[in-house]
């Protein structure tokens, strides 16, 4: 066991975990931040996506030791003072989910995309998000939600 101070959604949190354990494990089982999902544990589905210093990362493949210096954003950290982020609001407005299990990862990937490219083309969205699986097949609505968020007067990438 090693001790870490993690900066999660703006808070400094102390955790004790084996250094090689995944950030996903620590978020879910140590910090009870269950909005981050296990889908495959192999970096193939992106359900576990979080942002490390604003960049998307597969938390299932990220050792907690490697995340200790970064600002970690999980799905729980996007809402500010009861206001959804533009991407969250756009997913809601487009009904861009069915079972919703992929939604956390989708929202965070889209947030990172819009931070890097404020008005992405459809091709750019598809390329950027192609690692994210929605087994319910809601892809066209998710693309529409990202486009809607990119039109938001509020800066969609946040911060």
């Amino acid at each position: 066991m090693s001790d870490f101070i993690l900066k999660v959604n703006g808070a400094r949190l102390h955790v004790s975990a084996p250094a090689e354990k995944s950030l996903l494990f620590v978020l879910r089982d140590r910090l009870n931040l269950t909005g981050t999902k296990y889908g495959c544990g192999e970096g193939q589905c992106a359900a576990c996506t979080v942002l490390l210093d604003g960049k998307p990362a597969r938390s299932c493949l990220t050792p907690v030791s490697a995340a200790a210096k970064a600002n970690i954003t999980t799905i729980e950290g996007l809402e500010q003072n009861g206001h959804l982020s533009p991407v969250q609001q756009a997913f809601l407005d487009e009904g861009a989910f069915q079972c919703g299990y992929c939604t956390s990862g989708m929202v965070l990937c889209a947030t990172a995309l819009l931070r890097a490219t404020s008005h992405p083309t459809e091709d750019q969205i598809v390329t950027y998000m192609d690692g994210n699986i929605c087994r319910c097949g809601t892809y066209p609505r998710i693309v529409a939600a990202v486009q809607r968020a990119s039109q938001s007067p509020q800066k969609a990438g946040g911060q």
């Binding site: 931040l33 269950t34 909005g35 981050t36 999902k37 999980t74 799905i75 729980e76 996007l78 809402e79 959804l84 969250q88 609001q89 997913f91 809601l92 009904g95 989910f97 919703g100 299990y101 939604t103 956390s104 929202v107």
Partner: peptide, 12 residues
């Protein structure tokens, strides 16, 4: 309960 899915609050 769509809001619970975009905020990660829903407990699966």
């Amino acid at each position: 309960n769509g809001r619970d899915f975009v905020t990660g609050k829903h407990k699966y």
